[in-house]
């Protein structure tokens, strides 16, 4: 009835049709959020269809949310938390990964398992003790308190991830400089770390997104509105501006823009990173 060629053509058409429909369906919430974010309240309330295509594009909603509602402040707060956390966790986890990848010692496997298990536990198990500990060392309601926790908690995944990468490094690359008398720390810093740049980049992208998206730990460790990150800012906005859909919508778009740009720019890294450990935060 059909020859191979026409079968393939049908298959191809089927693929494009089905894929387009599927992606369009899946992204409806995001498209709707964007439409809402550029409408005036009159337009949203006036037409029966709150979700219709915008008649006039009010991009000044964004400016309003950014400055008068204070989204700009929240975004900056998130950056101040996220960047040091990512850097800190990369440095510490690469040290641990180096030890676990290149040295045979008794507790090696056990420590690896500890790092892996730690990244999967329910956060609730840490909440009260971390809350109390942070309070007792005087870091409650400070950025440092949240940053230190993020660094520590993300060590599990990062160590696991980097150790897997380090183990693929040909051993001769590590062995040769040793024979020439290089110290172990120099091998770590001048040979392994430069080699690991692509995987460090992949990890940085993933960690950036995860820490950026965190809500729980800022909720527990930060009380003052002045320090709150964008995720909490958004949750707060829901309380104050619940019926100003255009404001909350443009707030959401602002909150998602940086991780989104990061993802689109470093997609390949992102996806490969997600599958290495097959775990997300």
């Amino acid at each position: 009835m059909f020859n191979e060629k026409s079968k393939r053509r049908v298959l191809k058409a089927g693929f494009y049709l089905l894929s387009t429909a599927l992606v369009a369906f899946w992204l409806i919430p995001l498209v709707l959020a964007f439409f809402t974010s550029v409408k005036s309240m009159d337009e949203i309330m006036g037409t029966g269809a709150m979700w219709a295509f915008p008649k006039s594009w009010r991009f000044d909603n964004y400016a309003k949310v950014w400055s008068s509602i204070g989204m700009g402040r929240y975004v900056l707060n998130t950056i101040f938390i996220t960047v040091p956390s990512v850097l800190g966790t990369l440095v510490l986890s690469s040290l641990a990964a180096f030890a676990l990848a290149f040295y045979g010692f008794k507790l090696n496997r056990m420590i690896l398992v500890m790092f892996i298990a730690g990244m999967l536990i329910p956060f609730q198990m840490l909440m009260i003790p971390v809350f109390r500990f942070t309070d007792s060392i005087g870091l409650m309601n400070t950025r440092i308190g949240v940053i230190l926790f993020h660094i520590a908690f993300q060590l599990g995944f990062c160590t696991f991830f980097l150790r897997n990468f380090f183990r693929q490094v040909p051993f001769s690359l590590v062995e040769a400089p040793r024979i020439d008398g290089a110290s172990d720390f120099r091998i770590y810093w001048q040979i392994i770390m430069p080699l690991a740049k692509p995987s460090l980049a992949a990890l940085a992208v993933l960690e950036f997104t995860w820490i950026w998206n965190d809500l729980l730990w800022s909720l527990v460790l930060l009380q003052s509105d002045r320090l709150k990150p964008v995720t909490l800012g958004l949750a707060n906005m829901q309380g104050e501006f619940i019926s100003y859909y255009n404001m909350t919508a443009s707030g959401s778009i602002i909150a998602m823009i940086l991780p989104l740009v990061f993802f689109l720019a470093f997609q390949r890294y992102f996806v490969s990173g997600m599958t290495v450990g097959a775990v997300k935060g």
Partner: peptide, 27 residues
Amino acid sequence: GNRIYKTLFYLPMTLSFAIIGTIWMWI
């Protein structure tokens, strides 16, 4: 073009629940 589909479909994964929750509230 299958890569574009994958990228688009993957987008929700990069968003925080704070954003996702806000958007779905109106849905």
